[in-house]
Amino acid sequence: MSSAEDKADRESVDGLRRRHPLARGIELLTLMTDSDRDVHGVRELAGRLDVSPSTAHRLIADLEKLGLVSRTANGSYRLGLEYLRLAWTTTERYPIQEVSRDTLQELTEQSGESSFFAVYGEQRLQMMFTLVVESSHPLRYTLPMRQQIPLHAGASGLAILAFLPAQIQDRIARGPLRAATDRTLVEPQGLFDRLAMIRRDGYAITHGERIDGAIAIASPVFGPAGSVVGSAGISMPEARFNAAHSSSLAGLVKQSARQITDYLTGARDPRTGIVRR
């Protein structure tokens, strides 16, 4: 995608946000949800939304009337009970985290390694880990939960990137690509070749490309429309990795990713785990 197209996309998003209070309100809730802070000030939110404090205050006031945000005793704001009710209700109706946890638990038991589920963020073209089942080994890597992470460094992101539309791959590959370690692939053509291999094999395996000394294997997870929505996989210290077992580990990872895909697409009942005919 050209720089002119990138600029046009940004201007389109910015124009939508300025014209539609609903879009700005949703963006405000997204900022509060993604933040690692519990409370927020009006000026802080205004700065992050790139709007005036008065505009931010009007948005917050409307959301407060709906119960989606609430005001604290010192005048700051936090997510409201109505927002939490909606989130909890949605989780109960679509228990993907619960069934994904069961799948990851089984993957950890079978592989002996920590397993994870990562979600693709279409707006930022990044991913985040939303679920991890730790292995029982005393030596293991702790994954950064609910943090935006680039797609090009690490098996979890590469497994997603390989199945995104070609124009998105091109946009990301032509960077700039930041090196997380000295093993991170930051050369565009090398990245394109790597993605083609992942599409062929159905999984990605990396050696210290996001974290020094860590190995990860990941496979894509697809949603109801057939587009990639995330990845599932395992991570382990390089010292514990046996290359002779890589194929069997990759098979376990691909099986788990397919199972989560079945839950998301409705091919498998999320409450019983039974494949629907």
Score class of each variant (00 low, 15 high):
191 L>W: 05
178 R>M: 10
157 G>I: 05
161 L>R: 03
164 L>E: 05
189 Q>I: 14
162 A>V: 07
195 L>V: 14
185 L>C: 15
149 I>L: 13
163 F>P: 03
180 A>T: 00
167 Q>M: 07
173 A>V: 06
191 L>A: 04
157 G>M: 05
177 L>G: 00
176 P>L: 12
165 P>W: 11
161 L>G: 00
154 G>R: 01
144 P>M: 06
150 P>F: 03
178 R>A: 12
162 A>I: 08
163 F>G: 00
187 E>G: 01
158 L>Y: 06
147 Q>P: 00
146 R>T: 11
164 L>W: 02
196 A>L: 14
172 I>T: 09
162 A>N: 05
185 L>I: 15
169 Q>R: 12
177 L>S: 09
172 I>K: 03
145 M>D: 08
170 D>I: 00
158 L>N: 08
144 P>N: 07
180 A>I: 01
144 P>R: 05
194 R>G: 09
175 G>R: 07
150 P>D: 06
175 G>E: 11
186 V>N: 04
188 P>K: 09
167 Q>H: 15
192 F>C: 04
195 L>P: 01
160 I>N: 01
193 D>P: 08
193 D>R: 14
186 V>S: 08
183 R>H: 15
158 L>D: 01
165 P>N: 05
157 G>W: 00
167 Q>E: 15
156 S>E: 13
147 Q>R: 15
193 D>A: 14
145 M>T: 04
187 E>L: 00
171 R>C: 00
183 R>S: 14
177 L>M: 02
173 A>L: 07
159 A>D: 02
144 P>L: 02
146 R>G: 04
185 L>P: 05
182 D>L: 13
193 D>I: 04
175 G>Y: 04
187 E>W: 05
186 V>T: 13
166 A>H: 09
164 L>P: 01
166 A>M: 14
176 P>M: 12
195 L>H: 09
182 D>T: 14
174 R>L: 14
147 Q>L: 14
186 V>D: 03
173 A>K: 07
173 A>D: 03
149 I>M: 13
154 G>L: 03
188 P>T: 15
178 R>Q: 14
161 L>T: 05
179 A>N: 09
157 G>S: 09
151 L>D: 03
159 A>E: 04
183 R>L: 11
163 F>V: 12
178 R>T: 15
189 Q>M: 15
145 M>L: 13
183 R>Y: 13
194 R>T: 08
164 L>N: 02
174 R>M: 12
177 L>R: 11
157 G>T: 06
178 R>W: 11
161 L>D: 05
170 D>G: 11
167 Q>N: 15
